[in-house]
């Protein structure tokens, strides 16, 4: 057993783990972060993607001990404390970028990272940027659309203006024309 410490979605956890434990299993089985899922055993599907110090990684491709001391964000920590959705989450909803939703947590985290790197990506840049995240349901077209929409909303929302910062996010199920 090895002692590790990490901050996940804003909470610090100190645990003894077996050195062979994968980060994704530590997140799911020990910390109860079951929003992050496992879709393969060869690090191909991206379902397990989380942000590690702000950058996306496949949490099945890392041992828990390798994440000692880092700050992790999962899909469960993306929305604001008041429940306000992250622009990428909202855009996935608006653009119907998910069906069964199994790939969605990983896809959203990968998209967040993509937009951090490149705030105004082209279609091709989005398609290539998300290549490591497989989706069997959507054909990706609406995912690409969602990432564009999120990019636009993140570029145009200027948090320093009080109106923009305070504007309530549309609630789920509401019809929004895009």
């Amino acid at each position: 057993m090895t002692r590790i410490s990490m901050t996940v979605d804003g909470v610090r956890y100190d645990d003894d783990v077996e050195p062979r434990t994968l980060l994704v299993h530590h997140l799911r089985n020990r910390l109860g972060k079951v929003g992050t899922v496992v879709g393969c055993d060869t690090s191909n599907c991206g379902s397990c993607t989380v942000l590690l110090s702000g950058r996306s990684v496949k949490s099945c491709s890392l041992l828990a001990v390798q994440a000692d001391g880092v700050d992790i964000t999962t899909v469960e920590g993306l929305a604001g404390r008041d429940g306000e959705l992250h622009p990428v989450q909202l855009a996935f909803h608006e653009s119907h970028a998910l069906q069964c939703g199994f790939c969605t947590p990983g896809m959203i985290m990968a998209a967040v990272d993509l937009l951090t790197e490149n705030p105004d990506p082209s279609d091709t840049e989005i398609r290539e940027g998300l290549e490591g995240n497989l989706c069997r349901c959507t054909g990706y077209q609406n995912i690409v659309r969602a990432v564009h929409a999120a990019a636009t909303s993140m570029r145009t929302s200027v948090p320093s203006t009080p109106e923009a910062a305070g504007a309530p996010a549309p609630s789920m199920g509401e019809e929004v024309t895009t």
């Binding site: 996935f92 998910l98 969605t104 959203i108």
Partner: peptide, 17 residues
């Protein structure tokens, strides 16, 4: 074109797999 009710849990990781 209703946006889906299902999405709320799926995009926030509150899904019951």
């Amino acid at each position: 074109d209703r946006r889906r009710k299902e999405d709320a849990r799926l995009i926030t990781g509150r899904t019951m797999w």
